[in-house]
Design a protein around this nucleic acid. Structure first.
Length: 300
DNA sequence: AACCCTGCCAACCGCCTCATG
DNA sequence: ACATGAGGCGGTTGGCAGGGT
């Protein structure tokens, strides 16, 4: 127990790594493997603590690391997994080959968290924020739309089309990527260590995804709303790529909520009375939550 | 040109878990 | 059962780069 003393040792170099140090570390590990990280710095001729070497290797020097911008797909996966796992960056990283937990954590903190907040979602719970200020834009948009039925009609139509495309995409993705492992619930169970997994501590059943306690249970169900048959997707078999169609994040690239972040608050509000409205950003449920919010009632 | 602000990301810190004796 | 060390993890920070004034 207790913290590792290695970094407290004086005389060891800290801060950014030089190319020479990188070179030494790479050459040593390529030749001998990392073995004991604690012993490695001495053996490799580095004036660093083992922890620093390990971090440098796992986060930067490892040959299988994928660098550069996160793809839309990766972004989607992170959102989906974060909704289930929370800040379990290492668990999330296992589903993004070539990405490190540190990189994902940074990406989350600098990009995705902000996007969720901008969209009116709580980045921790992935639920619509119900405080009045975070929904102020939604309220304003709603007020505008009430006075503009033409726009509403247009938006409803567009959104219905988008939802159909999303479902089709999910279905294709499901067929192409997940079909070989249909009975394999490990897609989900892998998301977490066994002791933490709600799946494994309860009966490992697909019914989990329909359970109200499931992470996405609070989110709108596209299937019932829009009468599109893709029930297979609803089982959440392709969770890493998209937990279930009930997730607001489960969208193809071109119409992902993030890609469409700006119009979302408006289009989703537009359809508050439409059967398809729940397909984005919480839809009816989001508004019922908002309207049920004591703060809202107090102001009203 | 100089300064300030903001965003980004590599690296560090401190705690936790696990393995071992 | 307990103590200890090593590795792993998530949160935080420091410094750089780029943009704005």
């Amino acid at each position: 127990m207790g913290r590792s003393p290695c970094c407290d040792e004086s005389g060891l170099k800290k801060g950014p790594w030089t190319p020479e140090e990188d070179d030494k570390l790479i050459k040593y590990i390529q030749k001998h493997g990392h073995g004991s990280w604690r012993a490695l710095p001495k053996l490799a001729g580095l004036n660093r603590c083992g922890k620093s070497c390990r971090l440098r290797w796992t986060n930067y020097l490892r040959p299988d690391i994928k660098r550069g911008k996160f793809s839309q797909e990766e972004e989607q996966t992170i959102l989906n997994l974060h909704a289930i796992l929370g800040n379990k960056w290492s668990a999330i990283a296992t589903h993004l080959p070539g990405r490190t937990d540190n990189e994902i954590k940074n990406f989350w903190n600098t990009h995705l968290k902000k996007k969720l907040i901008q969209m009116g979602f709580d980045p921790m719970t992935h639920r619509p924020r119900t405080d009045i200020f975070s929904n102020l834009n939604n309220l304003i948009a709603l007020a505008n739309l009430i006075e503009n039925p033409m726009w509403e009609e247009q938006a409803m139509r567009l959104q219905a089309e988008a939802v159909q495309m999303a479902r089709l995409s999910q279905y294709l993705q499901y067929i192409s990527t997940t079909l070989p492992s249909i009975p394999d619930i490990t897609t989900f169970s892998l998301l977490n260590s066994p002791k933490d997994s709600p799946i494994l501590t309860s009966a490992p059943s697909l019914s989990y995804f329909q359970d109200q306690s499931a992470p996405f249970a609070h989110l709108p169900n596209l299937q019932t709303a829009c009468d599109i048959q893709a029930s297979e997707c609803a089982t959440g078999k392709n969770l890493a790529a998209g937990p279930s169609p009930s997730s607001p994040w489960q969208m193809p690239e071109d119409i992902s909520p993030l890609a469409a972040a700006a119009p979302v608050t408006e289009t989703s509000i537009t359809n508050t009375g439409d059967v398809c409205s729940s397909s984005s950003y919480g839809g009816n449920q989001m508004w019922s939550e908002l309207l049920d919010d004591p703060l809202f009632n107090e102001i009203a």
